[in-house]
């Protein structure tokens, strides 16, 4: 039983890991077919992961309603939004438009989801600006550099900024394409080396946290 619970998952990770690492070096149609198939398989398995997440969300809000915790009425709003969207979406076969005409599902997307999402992210602009006001004091040379770079980029991204300082657009592009790109590249190389090391640790069973705790 210990083999099934502990060794079998590690064996599956080892075999699949080595197999799909080797797949990259085998330029054969069957190798490509295997990659295409397993990509679809992962999408299908991901669908089951969504079931886990949605069930968890349902459970959390059901508990809130049952215990009548503060704000439990909002859980009903969440349920109504979710179930309403699912029913209408399935009724229209998941299509936003049919023959060029917007369906009720498309209406929900256009007039409810897009405004909610857009506004939710837009109000972050105020909080970022507020945080910047508190933390962006040029207390050191490094903070001053950060402040100046931020101001130049903000100026260079709007027509008014380019009108006031004509060269700000070119400098912004240079900062983004050269200075910013060099830092992103260095961080990407570092992160990639870490990702490769972690992948090797997972395949060879050194890193086992993904299996979770519980009984052996």
């Amino acid at each position: 039983m210990t083999f099934l619970r502990r060794q079998l998952p590690l064996l599956i990770t080892l075999v699949t890991g080595l197999l799909f690492a080797a797949q990259y070096y085998i330029p054969h149609p069957s190798s490509e077919l295997m990659l295409t198939s397993v990509s679809k398989w992962l999408q299908i398995i991901g669908g089951f992961a969504l079931i886990l997440g949605v069930t968890s969300l349902f459970h959390i809000h059901a508990v809130k309603i049952r215990r009548k915790e503060p704000g439990w009425g909002y859980s009903f709003v969440l349920y109504a939004g979710m179930i309403g969207t699912i029913v209408i979406g399935l009724w229209h076969g998941g299509k936003e438009t049919t023959d060029g005409v917007t369906t009720a599902f498309g209406w929900i997307y256009t007039f409810m989801m897009v405004p909610l999402q857009g506004t939710m992210f837009a109000i972050l602009a105020f909080f970022i600006a507020s945080a910047a006001y508190r933390s962006f004091r040029a207390r050191s040379r490094e903070a001053a550099v950060l402040l100046i770079a931020a101001i130049i980029v903000m100026m260079g991204r709007v027509p008014l900024g380019e009108h006031l300082i004509p060269i700000s657009g070119d400098i912004t592009q240079w900062i983004l394409n050269v200075l910013n790109a060099s830092v992103r590249r260095a961080i990407l190389i570092g992160v990639s080396l870490g990702a490769v090391a972690l992948s090797l640790k997972i395949i060879f069973g050194v890193e086992r946290a993904y299996l979770g705790g519980g009984k052996e």
Binding site: L57, S75, L78, Y79, G81, M82, T85
Partner: peptide, 9 residues
């Protein structure tokens, strides 16, 4: 809450 519900749906 409506946003969360609609997004999940």
């Amino acid at each position: 809450h409506l946003y969360v519900g609609i997004s999940v749906g």
